[in-house]
Design a protein around this nucleic acid. Sequence first.
DNA 1: TGCGAATATTAAGTGAAACTTAAGAGGTAC
DNA 2: GTACCTCTTAAGTTTCACTTAATATTCGCA
Lengths: 219, 219
Amino acid sequence: MRLLLVEDDTLLAQGLVRSLQKEGYSVDHAATLAQAEHLLSPENTELVVLDLGLPDGDGMSLLRKIRRKKWPIGVIILTARDRVEDKIEGLDLGADDYLPKPFEPKELFARLRVVSRRGKLVTSSALAVGDIEMDMASHTVEVNGESLNLPRKEFMLLKALMENVGRVLSKEQLENKLYQWGEELGSNAIEVHIHHLRKKLPENTIKTLRGIGYVMGKK
Amino acid sequence: MRLLLVEDDTLLAQGLVRSLQKEGYSVDHAATLAQAEHLLSPENTELVVLDLGLPDGDGMSLLRKIRRKKWPIGVIILTARDRVEDKIEGLDLGADDYLPKPFEPKELFARLRVVSRRGKLVTSSALAVGDIEMDMASHTVEVNGESLNLPRKEFMLLKALMENVGRVLSKEQLENKLYQWGEELGSNAIEVHIHHLRKKLPENTIKTLRGIGYVMGKK
DNA sequence: TGCGAATATTAAGTGAAACTTAAGAGGTAC
DNA sequence: GTACCTCTTAAGTTTCACTTAATATTCGCA
């Protein structure tokens, strides 16, 4: 479920991107109309949150394009509170909803939910290496049809390795993936997690390169 | 295209009737719930503009009835700005839109156009996962043929989980589904509701992923 | 072959997350 | 008004993921 946020106010956009991600959306962000056109992908984009006041043109044209091409994309318009005319034009052009600025993020989420309820496109991102399949949505890992329930850190670790099949990841790199760059690890936590993972996975799934790091084999 | 306006504020109603007629609608006007029930005609009425605060009962019951009977009628709810709960419940019962009072007539017209453009209206349907069956319209849940009467919040929670079978929902996501932008939860309400739900459902229906969220199993 | 460093293995301890329970506020129906 | 239902809070308890630390093992290199 991909969402395109078109908003030129950098500060606002940053905050929104973060909280939208927390809500489970994969978010693309465009600050200009040109960028938006570029990032918009009819197959993958499911929702567009569209600010109208853009530096390089009127956001409405993007909406018009989406509707003309009949792409199955939900569009929510953001407008300043007083531009009633815009709202109406927007709704008539086929926006699914609009939201006057300023708004509560929660309200945006609620409206997004209403809009996407119609489309109901289910995309669960999955990752597979050899006999190991990982499903982000359900947070499960399947090995030869048997499903494992991995704790958070182990899941992240395995994900990092699977996303980098055939590439060696140093312990430092792995640490950075698992921990916010807030806390220092004073111990061998990574090694312990690797150990736990190995007990649950087929043999030789994770190889050690002494002094270098860990890899998952390509085949 | 027949439109039923349910609004007890006579002054407001008169104004609306006139301007809606100018917009090209045939308008029926009901000032009470009883009148509304009487005027509502499944074959002819296409849109209902529904004020919730009525002298002789809750307008929501009308909406519920329309959805339960699966009549193809679009419903837009009017509410005072502060009755947030109403809006949410309304949308969950299948209202197509709501409009906070006070509003611009132009805005109502725009939304009416959006709703009637959709034509085939979203009728809330049934949902089944494993032995659990949920009927949105009548707000009931059946487990192995036995029917449960779930309180509103528990129902919503279960609905959220059932609509996302196999997908993990964080507590944050669930909170947003249940509470929208009205209230901040300062507590463990979600956990408590989950607890109550589990006592009523078959074992292992809802799984906990520590630090991540909750899932309902796919199989 | 033997030594040191890197990694593996265990087991225990800690803290945070989730569970459980119960009390009380607010609403509704009778 | 009273009784009931629902929801939120809060406190106490339990559970479990994660870290830590202590010990064992392996590996590379002389």
